[in-house]
Amino acid sequence: MYSLIAMMAALIGVAGLYSSWRRLALAGPGVVAGSWLLIVLSGWIWCLGWGVEFGTVFACLALSVAGGVFLLLNYEVRERKSPRPADTQQLVINPRTWGRHALLSIIVFPVAGTLSVVGSILLAHEMPWIPVNQMVLAVLLIPVIWGAAAYWACADPLPGRPAIALGVGALLSLACLYL
């Protein structure tokens, strides 16, 4: 029963967002806010029925499924534009870009990796928790921090900037941890 109510709440919430997006009869900031409220409420109902652990996961899965349902309702098939297939040219490898790719690889993996590992451990170590909780927080934080650092390294037009910042960050974190 809880599952049914929660799923309905998620579907109605997403329907509200969809209605606003399509500018149907029900639209406007009030509808959007109400829809998000319903989506949050559906999460709470999932938790009531299944406990916090299952409930949280189910709420996320249900939101994705509900979104997919309305996406399918709204798809639009257009006339295929089939440009004349281009001839296959020889693969051109430009060695001038290798330097940049190599530099990015070094920043994304060893540099960002070192910072994320020692930075996460340092951050977790500073939490007022017992060691087991600190360790687990560090382990789960690493991919997020590493991913964010990797993104910065690739996005910055001056790759030296993230390289230096991440490198210095890693060294400072190491110093804080070991000195």
Binding site: W21, R22, F70, L71, E76, R78, K81, Y151, A155
Partner: peptide, 21 residues
């Protein structure tokens, strides 16, 4: 992370699915 930042219309276009074309 980069996908969310690279697509400012990601949520605005959340229901738009144009196939073929």
């Amino acid at each position: 992370i980069s996908g969310l930042l690279a697509h400012p219309r990601l949520f605005k276009d959340a229901f738009s699915l144009r196939l073929r074309g």
